[in-house]
Write a protein that binds this DNA or RNA. Structure first.
Length: 644
DNA sequence: AGCGCCCCAATCTAGACAGCATGTC
DNA sequence: CTAGATTGGGGCGCT
């Protein structure tokens, strides 16, 4: 099937053909046969980089009206925004928390790219552009199975069907065990394929040898490759995972390729990058200068030093500007290798010839746990750059004792199932409130009726949700966010909480803080920050053992400014970490430099950045909540927010 | 006394979405 | 319930 035979404008066909895209990939052709161009709903469960974006483009351009492209990450939103903007004669808008356009203008575009939470928020607040949508593409739908954000996605898709009846839904999924159930739920056709534009070989390394899967026999082999097993010369100890990783990365780079190494922790990513950079895999002085120019942070300097040697590290402790610079430089082949934590597994397109997964376990608070198959598959899926590499190679580093288990778990095993997490009481409380506050339902039955369109209800009779919904309603009534007389209705507080997009628990914490503050003699900026940081919507900041005593002292010194009495908390540890976050942000608003804070509180520059951003949102929300709460305390939320 | 090394024990551990309404150099 | 890398300090021996 050829691009020129598709029902697209001549300009768009030229656009694709000028980029060498003439023939459809098999999964794309299957999508066309399944009717993507005729408004048919579709679930496409195919590997990354097998042309999902093209299928999405087809659906949105052939739909009879505007299209919405939902992504899970801001970085992805930006990437897709740029991709779609390159299409001739297509107007594209973007809506994420950090980059927003006026809602009225969003309706003017042919395509809008947005994060799932932003769409949820738009639906809750009755944005009118939602009702006009003809096509909605959901990227990474398998995330409905993720604990925190999955319920939001499924409720969004369920309510979207109400606001825009008859929309074409095109859901793009990683390969999972039960894509048919997703398709059933969305009343969509299913296209399933494992086809990739570049072959992928997955192998397990142990004791100086890599054993590859049977895919290898289908591909032309590198010189010296004698079959499905290959020796790797490891300078150092072949039994040492880091020495082996070093050798595997170096080998790929010497061979003219690029490599991606995945490790467990941030620190290990940095250590490995420094080690590889010391061996000088290449040099990128311009990129190093670019990174050095971003900030005067210790982390930034170390990153720039590594980049001098052609290697970068990548994790969430980096500022987003650092991450963007590293990703761009790697894509433009100005870097030879990236050592990363799992940040890079999902997200923006950063393909490499070889992927080395050194660590397959992760600390979870109660010990080490194997990474989910899907996550490791996503890491491995980064191997193979179309048009640049003859094939992609992914190597899991193990030893004789783990070889077989790695093989079974990640090479042979199929992917995991996706299952709804909506039954979680916290998730349900949030969504029951939003359904009531946005007038989707005015009774218990109404709520159940809305939830009937969720993935959860598809697998389980809604009656099973009845009990959990009842407790959610009771909780919300007790929190003063809903009244249950003669039907359900949101109170002013409940409406504000839903509109501000904070969880009911956050709203309750703010209300509680305001009440306590009313009786306090000293209410300061620190008070405002303490309330907001003690909220479940604020991410907590790691409190090291060595800092604990100092933080305890700080908490005591400022006890009269806090809405929490030190002796009366159930979760003192949790509160103390909130105090740390509040203290960092307080110093920031009082003029401390990022360099100073990062050093003194042992946090990454990216951690500081994200906390500032979040505090900005939460202080604004707290201020809005304060305006509907009957409390006289003047907590300076707005003043602190202005200082951020 | 000063320095270097080794061993044991303490320390530490991935990621990341979201509001709203204007004045402003 | 399920770990493993890194760091820091103390002790010890050598010069």
């Amino acid at each position: 099937m050829r691009v020129r035979d598709l029902p697209l404008s001549a300009a768009v066909i030229d656009h694709f053909e000028s980029r060498g895209i003439e023939e459809l990939y098999p999964p794309q052709a299957a999508a066309v046969e399944a009717g993507v161009c005729e408004g048919r709903r579709l679930v496409a469960a195919v590997p990354t980089a097998s042309g999902k974006t093209f299928v999405a483009t087809l659906a949105m351009l052939t739909a009879d009206g505007p299209g919405l492209y939902i992504v899970p990450l801001r970085a992805l939103a930006r990437e897709k925004y740029e991709t779609f903007s390159a299409l001739p004669g297509v107007s594209v808008g973007i809506s994420t928390g950090d980059f927003d356009e006026r809602a009225t203008e969003l309706g003017d575009h042919d395509i809008v790219v947005a994060t799932s939470e932003k769409v949820d928020s738009a639906i809750r607040n009755g944005a009118d552009w939602i009702a006009d949508l003809a096509c909605v593409v959901v990227d990474e739908v398998h995330l409905v199975g993720s604990e925190g954000r999955g319920p939001t996605l499924e409720v969004t898709l369920a309510t979207l069907g109400r606001r825009a009846p008859g929309v074409q839904i095109v859901a793009l999924s990683a390969t999972v065990a039960n894509p048919d159930e997703l398709a059933d739920w969305l009343d969509a056709g299913l296209v399933q394929s494992t086809w990739r534009p570049v072959d992928l070989r997955t192998g397990v390394y142990a004791a100086g040898r890599v054993g590859f899967d049977s895919e290898a026999s289908k591909t032309p082999r590198a010189a010296g490759d004698d079959g499905t097993e290959r020796d790797v010369s490891v300078p150092g100890d072949p039994a040492d995972a880091t020495d082996a990783t070093d050798a595997l990365v170096t080998e790929a780079v010497d061979d003219g390729g690029q490599a991606l190494a995945f490790v467990r922790s941030r620190r290990e990513a940095e250590t490995l990058a420094e080690r590889l950079a010391a061996a000088d895999l290449g040099s990128s002085p311009e990129v190093a200068d670019e990174i050095r120019g971003l900030d005067g942070t210790e982390t930034g300097r170390r990153l720039a030093d590594c980049v001098e040697g052609g290697v970068a590290f990548h994790h969430a402790g980096l500022r987003s500007a650092h991450r963007v610079a590293v990703e761009r430089a790697f894509r433009d082949r100005e870097l030879k290798a990236i050592c990363a934590t799992p940040t890079l597994a999902a997200g923006v397109n950063v393909p490499a010839r070889r992927v080395v997964v050194r660590d397959q376990k992760r600390y979870t608070g109660s010990g080490m746990e194997w990474l989910p198959t899907l996550e490791v598959h996503q890491m491995c899926g980064r191997a193979g750059r179309p048009h640049l590499d003859p094939y992609g190679e992914a190597v899991l580093v193990g030893d004789e004792t783990t070889r077989d288990e790695l093989w079974e778990r990640y090479v042979e095993a199929g992917p995991e199932r996706v299952d709804s997490k909506l039954a979680d009481p916290n998730a349900l409380r949030t969504h029951v409130l939003s359904v009531v506050a946005s007038d989707f339902a005015a009774s218990r039955e109404g709520v159940l009726d809305v939830l009937d369109a969720t993935f959860f209800a598809h697998g389980t009779p809604t009656s099973e949700l009845g009990g959990v919904v009842d407790t959610a309603i009771a909780d919300l009534v007790e929190m003063g966010m809903i009244v249950d007389e003669d039907g359900l209705a949101a109170t002013d507080l409940g409406a504000q909480v839903s509109r501000q997009y904070v969880t009911p628990e956050t709203g309750a914490r703010v209300v509680d803080g305001l009440r306590t503050a009313t009786g306090m003699a000293t209410v300061t900026g620190l008070t405002a920050l303490e309330i907001v940081c003690d909220t479940p919507d604020m991410q907590d900041t790691y409190l090291g053992n060595r800092e604990r005593a100092d933080m305890y002292q700080f908490a005591q010194d400022h006890a009269d400014e806090f809405t929490t009495r030190m002796g009366e908390t159930e979760d003192f540890e949790g509160w103390l970490t909130a105090v740390k976050t509040a203290r960092v942000l307080y110093e920031w608003t009082e003029g401390a430099s990022a360099e100073d804070l990062v050093e003194r509180f042992r946090i990454g520059p990216g951690d500081l950045e994200s906390r500032i951003e979040r505090a900005e949102w939460l202080l604004g929300a707290a201020d809005a909540i304060a305006s509907v709460v009957d409390a006289d305390a003047a907590v300076p939320f707005r003043e602190r927010r202005a200082r951020l």
